[in-house]
Amino acid sequence: QIFVKTLTGKTITLEVEPSDTIENVKAKIQDKEGIPPDQQRLIFAGKQLEDGRTLSDYNIQKESTLHLVL
């Protein structure tokens, strides 16, 4: 699982696999929060994550925290 922290300070927990794409993660966030993926920007280690890449591409491991910017 990974954590996604929103600007409001809320933390969302997501069940993911390293092979999941960023697009996939955004879809999971939409399921939980109702935020359309095209409004979501995910930041990890100061980098904006691209939809077509996977979590493992960015070396995002379990218990990692991503930041969600709208």
Score class of each variant (00 low, 15 high):
9 G>R: 04
63 E>L: 10
5 K>A: 07
12 I>H: 03
70 L>S: 11
26 K>C: 02
12 I>M: 06
7 L>T: 13
67 H>E: 12
59 N>Y: 07
9 G>F: 03
45 A>S: 08
7 L>N: 14
24 N>E: 15
36 P>G: 05
64 S>L: 04
64 S>W: 04
39 Q>H: 09
42 L>R: 00
46 G>N: 07
9 G>P: 02
2 I>E: 01
14 L>V: 09
1 Q>L: 15
70 L>I: 13
3 F>Q: 05
63 E>M: 10
55 L>M: 06
27 A>E: 10
41 R>H: 13
4 V>E: 01
32 K>S: 11
16 V>S: 04
9 G>H: 05
8 T>V: 08
37 P>S: 12
46 G>P: 01
33 E>D: 05
40 Q>G: 03
59 N>D: 09
68 L>G: 01
61 Q>H: 11
5 K>E: 09
5 K>N: 06
16 V>L: 07
53 R>N: 10
61 Q>E: 11
20 D>C: 08
29 I>W: 00
26 K>I: 03
62 K>E: 13
61 Q>L: 11
33 E>K: 04
31 D>W: 08
11 T>V: 14
28 K>A: 07
65 T>L: 10
54 T>L: 10
65 T>S: 05
58 Y>E: 03
64 S>P: 03
4 V>P: 01
22 I>R: 00
54 T>S: 09
36 P>C: 10
25 V>C: 05
28 K>T: 03
24 N>W: 11
58 Y>P: 00
70 L>N: 09
21 T>Y: 08
48 Q>W: 12
47 K>L: 13
8 T>A: 12
47 K>A: 11
39 Q>R: 12
1 Q>K: 13
62 K>S: 15
37 P>L: 14
67 H>W: 11
21 T>G: 03
22 I>D: 00
30 Q>W: 14
57 D>F: 12
7 L>F: 13
55 L>Q: 00
65 T>Y: 08
16 V>K: 01
34 G>R: 06
41 R>Y: 12
14 L>G: 00
11 T>N: 06
10 K>W: 09
69 V>Q: 10
1 Q>N: 11
63 E>H: 13
69 V>P: 01
13 T>G: 05
3 F>K: 07
13 T>L: 09
45 A>W: 08
11 T>D: 04
66 L>G: 02
23 E>D: 08
33 E>Y: 08
5 K>W: 05
28 K>F: 05
46 G>C: 09
10 K>Q: 09
36 P>A: 10
58 Y>V: 03
66 L>K: 01
19 S>G: 11
8 T>F: 13
57 D>H: 11
20 D>M: 10
15 E>I: 13
59 N>T: 05
44 F>M: 05
68 L>R: 00
27 A>Q: 13
2 I>V: 06
49 L>M: 06
50 E>D: 09
36 P>H: 11
6 T>K: 04
40 Q>W: 06
14 L>A: 02
17 E>S: 12
24 N>V: 14
11 T>Q: 07
45 A>H: 13
21 T>I: 05
50 E>S: 07
41 R>K: 10
20 D>I: 05
38 D>F: 12
58 Y>C: 05
64 S>Q: 08
43 I>V: 09
52 G>H: 13
39 Q>K: 11
60 I>N: 01
25 V>N: 00
30 Q>G: 07
3 F>N: 06
28 K>Y: 06
27 A>T: 11
42 L>Y: 03
43 I>G: 03
2 I>S: 01
37 P>F: 12
21 T>W: 05
37 P>Y: 11
37 P>I: 14
4 V>N: 01
22 I>Y: 01
32 K>P: 02
39 Q>M: 11
10 K>R: 12
61 Q>P: 13
5 K>I: 15
56 S>P: 03
4 V>T: 01
40 Q>E: 02
35 I>P: 04
18 P>I: 12
25 V>W: 01
24 N>M: 15
32 K>A: 13
12 I>E: 01
3 F>C: 06
50 E>A: 09
61 Q>I: 13
63 E>D: 15
26 K>D: 00
42 L>N: 00
11 T>F: 10
38 D>N: 11
64 S>N: 09
28 K>Q: 11
55 L>T: 02
5 K>T: 15
31 D>N: 10
60 I>C: 03
33 E>S: 11
17 E>A: 09
15 E>Y: 13
40 Q>Y: 14
56 S>M: 14
31 D>F: 12
42 L>C: 01
33 E>T: 13
6 T>S: 07
16 V>W: 13
58 Y>N: 03
4 V>Y: 02
15 E>A: 09
15 E>H: 12
56 S>F: 11
59 N>R: 06
51 D>E: 09
62 K>I: 13
18 P>Y: 11
67 H>A: 06
16 V>Q: 02
40 Q>D: 01
58 Y>M: 04
21 T>N: 04
54 T>Y: 07
16 V>M: 08
51 D>P: 07
51 D>Q: 05
66 L>I: 12
31 D>L: 14
2 I>G: 01
27 A>P: 00
38 D>V: 08
67 H>C: 15
22 I>F: 02
5 K>G: 04
2 I>M: 05
18 P>T: 09
31 D>E: 14
44 F>V: 04
65 T>E: 08
48 Q>F: 14
66 L>Y: 02
30 Q>V: 04
38 D>L: 11
14 L>T: 02
43 I>P: 00
61 Q>M: 10
61 Q>F: 09
54 T>C: 08
19 S>C: 14
21 T>M: 07
38 D>K: 11
14 L>I: 13
49 L>S: 00
53 R>P: 05
8 T>W: 11
37 P>C: 11
9 G>T: 03
49 L>I: 04
54 T>V: 07
66 L>V: 09
59 N>L: 07
30 Q>S: 11
31 D>S: 11
57 D>T: 04
26 K>F: 03
10 K>N: 08
31 D>V: 14
51 D>R: 04
53 R>L: 12
50 E>R: 07
9 G>A: 04
28 K>V: 04
40 Q>C: 08
23 E>L: 12
70 L>E: 09
24 N>C: 14
46 G>T: 04
16 V>C: 11
48 Q>L: 15
45 A>I: 06
50 E>P: 03
19 S>E: 11
34 G>Y: 04
25 V>G: 00
60 I>S: 01
69 V>L: 12
37 P>W: 11
60 I>D: 01
27 A>D: 07
65 T>I: 13
11 T>M: 12
11 T>P: 04
12 I>W: 05
18 P>L: 14
58 Y>G: 01
53 R>H: 15
69 V>A: 09
24 N>G: 09
12 I>C: 03
50 E>Q: 09
66 L>D: 01
65 T>H: 15
5 K>H: 10
61 Q>S: 11
27 A>Y: 13
70 L>D: 10
61 Q>T: 14
37 P>H: 10
58 Y>H: 04
16 V>A: 08
12 I>Q: 02
61 Q>A: 11
20 D>F: 07
32 K>T: 08
20 D>K: 02
18 P>R: 04
51 D>V: 06
61 Q>C: 09
58 Y>W: 02
49 L>T: 03
53 R>I: 06
57 D>N: 05
4 V>I: 14
51 D>Y: 04
49 L>K: 00
30 Q>N: 09
67 H>L: 13
55 L>N: 00
7 L>P: 14
57 D>Q: 06
61 Q>K: 12
14 L>K: 00
27 A>W: 12
3 F>L: 07
22 I>L: 05
13 T>R: 06
10 K>S: 08
40 Q>H: 04
40 Q>M: 13
48 Q>R: 08
48 Q>E: 15
16 V>D: 00
48 Q>C: 15
55 L>R: 00
9 G>M: 04
